[in-house]
């Protein structure tokens, strides 16, 4: 049985990684699970300098999901290179670095600093809904997205994945623009713009009022978007959005995804990544799928 997959020449032992921002750089969940078992770890967004993030409350639970407005709080790329890369390199797993910025210059700065760093893939985050400058603003207009991907790509010495926002009218238009700009792969979906109101206090739960929704409730939207994108572009796709187990992962793979990311499910169950890997294997065994590639995009 073959569960290994390849993205732009980087071979992963299985198609399961983590969704950026839900798993930090793996230390915390490494207390519960064996990080060696993951196909890759996708780390929390890294910026050129430390970012402070948004005021609390940053978290709200909704039916079958949650909202967050963390705002990409992170200690910056220098700290990341010094502390997190050596930590993750102790494990037999690939490293995908999520890159964030407020401006084209900041994205380029991170990518330049990561030149020569011992990581495997870069994921360009132009889809975070929780920052007022940059973030999603770059990923919701095809021309802007294409230009920033082209600029960042000039400096990247690793394959470049571009992460897509679902908060657009036609996600395939953005996907095509990113590929035109030089994206080697795409990942989707980032969180869905959403809001929760506390009717007793008569105000928004999140201090920033709106945030990004994730969790099982967004999964059908994500599957549809992965399906549409996979039918329009010829680069590998990492599918995510509400994946909690093997069956969810198989759904994304059948929609066309090469890899899948487990995100919010880690909060519900710290073993969610491992259960997803084991669930994929159990499905393949039961239904005689010898190679995971045989069911990719089968729908």
């Amino acid at each position: 049985m073959n569960t290994s997959v390849e993205i732009c020449g980087v071979k992963m032992k299985n198609p399961v990684t983590t969704a950026s921002g839900t798993f930090a750089s793996g230390r915390e969940y490494g207390e519960f699970i064996d990080l060696n078992r993951l196909g890759a770890v996708t780390v929390k967004g890294v910026a050129s300098k430390a970012w402070s993030g948004n005021p609390a409350p940053r978290i709200a639970e909704v039916y079958g999901g949650m909202l967050n407005s963390v705002g990409l709080q992170n200690p910056g790329v220098d700290w990341f290179i010094e502390n997190d890369i050596p930590f993750l390199r102790e494990y037999d797993t690939k490293i995908i670095v999520n890159v964030c910025g407020h401006s084209e210059e900041e994205y380029v700065d991170v990518v330049k600093k990561l030149r020569g760093a011992d990581v495997d893939l870069l994921e360009l985050n132009i889809s975070c809904p929780n920052v007022s400058e940059g973030g999603m603003a770059f990923g919701t207009d095809p021309k802007t997205a294409e230009n920033i991907v082209r600029e960042v790509k000039k400096y990247a010495d690793k394959p470049l994945i571009v992460k897509l926002s679902p908060n657009v009218t036609d996600i395939t238009a953005i996907a095509k623009a990113d590929v035109n700009g030089g994206a080697d792969a795409l990942s989707l979906i980032n969180t869905v713009n959403a809001m929760k109101i506390d009717i007793y206090r008569r105000k928004a739960v999140l201090s920033r009022k709106t945030g990004g929704m994730s969790g099982p409730a967004v999964k059908p939207i994500a599957v549809r978007m992965v399906y549409e994108v996979c039918n329009q572009v010829n680069v590998p796709v990492i599918g995510m959005g509400g994946i909690s187990n093997g069956e969810d992962a198989i759904e994304f793979i059948m929609a066309g995804a090469t890899m899948v990311s487990v995100g919010t499910a880690n909060f519900t169950d710290p073993f969610a990544t491992i259960k997803t890997i084991e669930g994929i294997e159990a499905y393949m065994k039961k239904y005689n799928v010898n190679d995971i590639r045989d069911i990719r995009g089968i729908v």
Binding site: T22, Y29, I59, T264, F267
Partner: peptide, 9 residues
């Protein structure tokens, strides 16, 4: 959310 320092919520 996570309770262990991963999500920074």
């Amino acid at each position: 959310a996570c309770g262990i320092g991963a999500c920074v919520g």
